[in-house]
Design a protein around this nucleic acid. Structure first.
Length: 351
DNA sequence: TCTGGGGTCCTAGGACCC
DNA sequence: TCTGGGGTCCTAGGACCC
């Protein structure tokens, strides 16, 4: 199978409608104001050369790149561009497409010459959307996904059982898709630093450290194993959420209640569009400076926003009074169709 | 350098029941 | 009087991804 990843997608879309930005360091994030609390969504390769990357505070990024062009996030435009790209992928002969986000997808296909297929796909995407992409080829989803990183920018790379350890074995476990800094740290306490060491690790040790599901899963990851089939069944959302980081921390109870009501209303718009009842609520609060608490409550099935708001206010009653609040988040979980819950291994959307 | 927003899934521990 | 073991449900928190 193939994994397709658009190169610097958001920055590239912005440059397409502002050609004069080509070759300049472009940073997209928040409302485009580096004085605000926000982070970088995407930086162009020119900006990355200064050490700017996704997730970095916008303020810091602006300081690193004095002559950067800083733009606000325009989700509608990216969604439209993404839809064009995905339509192009689906139009490829024999392609099964599993979308992973705005700018990436798995493409399942049977072909004698995957590299040629990948090149054809890149040309089709470029012709229809003027966007460049990199393609990974693999005999598992994990290997295809990891392979893409070696193809960037604009290239094609193949990772299979034959060259997995040769290419990945000496690299740190954090380079794996699904191993972050916390897990790599815990692995290190068992002397597991590299992908090869993880691949050969004692399953009992992994299960003891990470539990009966995640333990074996990390071992598989080290070997590049896992699902081999691209699944194009439409995604069913488990829930919807909204959160806001306030430019000034909230201190007044009335402010907090108004912010909560606003979040609930926005979430319930999304829920109404799904047409399934709500069964569980989560309230997330970040007290200044950075202490995050979550409060969860199962509720009787309802589609009524008024009922949900009343329940949300009950949850808000659990917050500590008198603390200033930096962030408020609200999530509603919905009932799932019976057939959509089955068969879930620790393979979130597409692993 | 002071850390967004929208998602998913797993694990641990306590409550409760038999 | 003190105490077992298993099962399920719920809540809180952690981790990861784009």
């Amino acid at each position: 199978m193939l994994h397709v990843d658009l190169d610097q997608f958001i920055a590239a879309v912005e440059v397409l409608r502002r050609p004069e930005l080509a070759g300049r360091p472009v940073i997209v994030g928040g409302r485009g104001d580096p004085a605000e609390r926000a982070v970088v969504s995407t930086a162009s390769y020119e900006a990355r050369a200064y050490g700017v990357g996704s997730g970095m505070p916008l303020r810091l990024a602006a300081r690193k790149v004095p002559d950067a062009v800083i733009l606000p996030v325009d989700a509608e435009t990216y969604t439209a561009a993404s839809a064009e790209v995905m339509a192009t992928l689906r139009a490829q002969p024999g392609a099964t497409v599993q979308v992973l986000g705005w700018d990436e997808a798995f493409v399942g296909v049977r072909t004698e010459d995957p590299e040629a297929y990948a090149r054809g796909l890149q040309e089709a995407v470029l012709e229809r959307t003027r966007l460049h992409c990199s393609v990974g080829i693999g005999d598992t989803l994990v290997r295809a996904k990891v392979a893409t990183g070696f193809g960037k920018p604009g290239g094609v790379f193949r990772l299979t059982a034959a060259n997995w350890l040769e290419v990945m074995g000496h690299r740190p476990t954090k380079d794996l898709w699904g191993v972050g800094s916390a897990v790599s740290r815990r692995l290190a306490t068992h002397g597991i630093l590299t992908v090869a060491e993880l691949a050969a690790a004692d399953p009992a040790v992994l299960a003891g450290e990470f539990g009966p599901r995640m333990g074996p899963w990390y071992g598989q990851l080290g070997r590049g194993e896992g699902a081999r089939a691209v699944d194009d069944t439409p995604w069913v959302a488990r829930g919807h959420s909204r959160e806001t980081t306030f430019q000034q921390n909230l201190t007044e109870p009335a402010q907090v209640d108004a912010a909560l009501a606003e979040l609930v209303a926005r979430v319930m718009e999304d829920v109404a569009a799904e047409g399934r009842p709500v069964i569980s609520l989560t309230l997330k609060v970040r007290y200044a400076p950075f202490l995050t608490k979550t409060f969860v409550k199962k509720i009787p099935e309802t589609t009524d926003p008024e009922v949900v708001l009343a329940r949300a206010r009950e949850l808000a009653g659990r917050m500590e009074p008198g603390r200033s609040i930096r962030l408020l988040g609200f999530r509603a979980e919905m009932t799932m169709p019976d057939d959509a819950r089955e068969g879930h291994t620790p393979t979130r959307s597409g692993w």
